[in-house]
Amino acid sequence: MKPDADTTIESAAIGAGHDGAAELVVNLRYPNGTVGPVVLDADIGFALLRTCGADSLNELKGHSWRAILESLHDV
């Protein structure tokens, strides 16, 4: 593990939520090399795209996990 490495977005995909709504499944790559998911609703998902200036889900890759927290201000 690199001591100063940050957790970053590895990938993102659309999933089907339990309530019938589409949701954004964001996979984060942690400094130890492992990958884990966080599931965002439409409000936060779109805010994340805006925060990262991303036009597509692919463009979320490489952004810091902190972008997810920042995107909360846009909800």
Binding site: L28, Y30, V38, V39, L40, D41, I44, W65, I68, L69, L72
Partner: peptide, 8 residues
């Protein structure tokens, strides 16, 4: 490690 609490 806990974005289910801090984001969702």
């Amino acid at each position: 490690w806990n974005l289910h609490i801090f984001a969702m």
